[in-house]
Write a protein that binds this DNA or RNA. Structure first.
Lengths: 213, 213, 213, 213
DNA sequence: AATGAATGAGGTTTCATTCAT
DNA sequence: AATGAATGAAACCTCATTCAT
């Protein structure tokens, strides 16, 4: 729809936020230099303060941009899927795709989690609980249908999120690291591709009934 | 025993390192203040420089302390286990226990990974590859025995590590956060306890052959 | 009448000057923010520069507005009074009335004097000397007539001005302050009223020769 | 007594406070530059923050130093005087002497009054009320004895304080100003000398009942 | 081995002013 | 005549590090 983006952000603000996303994801909040963000955005430092505010406000904006849209999108997509199995797959695929589209997201989130989420907005926790709730519902439904086993949804969620986020952040590190060993063969850098599929397989195997165990 | 520490660190150095571990894990390298570390260690800032050196040296020391012991121990434990399944279980249990014993470890590692691992010592990558290699070996062996399916060891590793690390760091945040929802019922704060067991179950279900899929 | 203003200032300029008077009197030149003045005037900052010029020019305009009219009016009124005693009374009453009509004046003047009068225009000194000269003349005349004692006119002037200015600025502070003590009974906030009369009485008693009053 | 100064300030702190007194009195709080204060004190800017704190804390310290001692001393001296007349004289003389000893005091106080006393510590108002109370008592006592007339102590206080403070700040301005007129003959720059005496004479004449003087 | 004090370099933020429209 | 946006210069403050004792 045309009214998708109600308030169009000015191009300058857009550039500032993009630069900020990059810098914050690279070095974290404390390590980020306002100078550097302004330089990359191609604006004067004062313009940054004029448009957005201080460093904290800028960070909040970045977090909001990255987390807000992602979680919302995730919820929407899950709702559209029909069967529990389909929902789980959608969940993993959407998360992976979101990360692919927002490459700064996993780093920022890892640091945020490490910091105890001090800077995470309420909305993040709200969304996290929504997702956990939804996931819980999916698994419960699957269990009723005799499809899924009894498990702790939070752990499942962290396995998925952890695998995606860590994979996404650690692979570039490994590839730029010292000696790249042979174990790393057959790795596709695109998470939403084969990796998401692999995670899907593993998670579904883990929670689906049938067979032994 | 206490006397198996070859090089006895002075009590002052010990206090400094402990404080540094705490502070670095809480706020990261860039966010850490030398003043604060000295204050928590109960020593004068100059003493800190006298004993250890500058901030970077202090951080290197902390990283070394935290990483060094962990990976080595992990390897040792895995070797002692007999069957592939036993090895996987040991792997998960030992990792969880290590995190429990070094609560600052996951936070520091998350941030390090997010930062591109610039400050991670060679040994970290060496250990990571060792673990991945070992894990790969375990899975290969299991596959030969018809016990495990074909999979990507790195993904399995990240699922395990991700679940443990994120769980360990995020649970305190959630519990101190705003509204604690009902989804979080039946959660035991001790990772090495029930959580490790749940992860064991899930991972083994995921990679073990038999049944459908 | 309104039409005796020779050069009609545009309403915008008027609003800017009014806002500037308020802000400068509240926080002084260095403490004033051009942003704040523009905001209070309800105009864009650039418009302020367009109409008046930079901060210094704005301040000069304010000073001119406040000082210019006051001293002139004071001189005019004194000349109309007949006897020395009458002149002194007129002097005090007019000064008090002027302050009442220009409540920002005493604050701005106090700060200017404290700053060494760097920003005070020539005309201020000219007027001050005129007033001191006139006062001196009044007292000399009164002395010749045997009515007044020999004294230092400047001190008399400062006693009058000091009492009025300090009273006018400090009373609002005291009344908005913490504990308002009983000493402040019977105080009328309007300087030109009872206070001016009390000062008249005291000053005339101080400089009048002989008997009672 | 030896215990007069319990806590001896370090020489560095002393130098910083002295420089701050000068700068703040010259250009006010908003106009003062921390750089300049540090430069004049001959210390590094960081040392200033190390020893005292931020600009506001520094200003508070200066105010405390200047106001705190003055009012206390004033009260002490008045108590020692015997007759009401003697007390009034002491009051004026002590105030003048204090200003002579703290040449930055009048400027700082003028600006503070002009600012509505926002930065003045509680103690200032407490002291002001004490003084007004004492003055009130003196005048009441004098009135009972038939010596003084009925009057408003606050006005008397402001006449005295105003004359001294304005005189002290304005005289240097005038002398450095453009044309020094003949009216300013016979002026002694030392307030505590002839000027205090002149004020004494005038004030006593103003409030004393009956005959000549 | 330990400390209070000092410092230079650099970080964040503010502010008067101007530009393009 | 008026405005939103942009900017350079400078202000305040912090921090890792070192020095003298």
């Amino acid at each position: 729809m045309a009214s998708d983006q109600v308030e169009r952000k000015s191009e300058t603000v857009e550039r500032i936020l993009d630069a900020a996303k990059d810098v914050f994801s690279e070095v974290g909040f404390a390590g980020a230099r306002v100078d550097e963000i302004a330089r990359r955005a191609g604006v004067n430092k004062a313009a940054l303060y004029y448009h957005i505010g201080d460093k904290k406000a800028l960070y909040a904006e970045v977090i909001h941009d990255i987390i807000g849209t992602a979680a919302e999108r995730l919820m929407r997509m899950i709702k559209e899927a029909k069967t529990p199995e389909e929902k789980i797959k959608t969940y993993i695929r959407t998360l992976a795709a979101t990360v692919d589209k927002n490459p700064q997201m996993p780093r920022i989130m890892m640091r945020e989690i490490a910091s105890g989420g001090t800077n995470l907005p309420e909305v993040f926790f709200h969304d996290l609980f929504s997702i956990l709730g939804t996931l819980s519902g999916i698994i419960d439904k699957g269990k009723e249908d005799g499809e899924f086993i009894e498990t702790i949804p939070m752990i499942v969620h962290f396995m998925i999120m952890g695998a995606i986020i860590i994979y996404k952040t650690i692979v570039p590190v490994i590839f730029s690291g010292p000696a790249i060993p042979k174990i790393l063969k057959g790795i596709n850098k695109n998470v939403s591709g084969s990796i998401a599929q692999e995670i899907e397989t593993l998670i579904l195997r883990a929670i689906t009934t049938g067979g032994v165990q």
